[in-house]
């Protein structure tokens, strides 16, 4: 069914990490499609270290978007992998803090390099 409709969020494999780069404005339908694509991708690979969400292309993230992203991360967690959120912009961060978003129990990184290092470390334990 999902063969014709695509979310438009690229999913790549790099250094045994699945990297998803968000560039379009997030809305519900798009995130649902993306969620399916990503989970399918993950179960096809068995030797990956984890998933990286590159959010550096997003100018605005509201609380609802953030909650959806978190729920996708929880789903990924169920498949046994960690997810790192990478490259949040300063303006996005301060608005999330102002809206009192719950940011606990997630991994964050400043850049993709750093995200890969974090995933390396979490797999060492």
């Amino acid at each position: 069914m999902g063969n014709w409709v695509k979310s438009g969020i690229p999913i790549q494999l790099h250094s045994q990490c699945i990297i998803a780069s968000f560039q379009l404005d997030l809305h519900e339908d798009l995130l649902k499609l993306f969620q399916q694509e990503l989970l399918h991708e993950i179960v096809q690979h068995t030797d990956i270290k984890g998933i990286i969400f590159d959010l550096s292309g997003l100018e605005i993230i509201d609380l609802v978007d953030f909650e959806r992203i978190k729920s996708i991360i929880n789903m990924i967690k169920l498949t046994g992998f960690n997810t790192v959120i990478s490259g949040l912009r300063p303006s996005v961060v301060s608005s999330l803090i102002m809206m009192d978003a719950n940011i606990d129990n997630l991994l964050y990184s400043i850049s993709l390099d750093e995200a890969i290092i974090i995933l390396d470390k979490t797999n060492d334990y």
Partner: peptide
Amino acid sequence: IKITKATKLMGC
């Protein structure tokens, strides 16, 4: 606490 949370979101 807010400032530290924000820096954490930046991956710092």
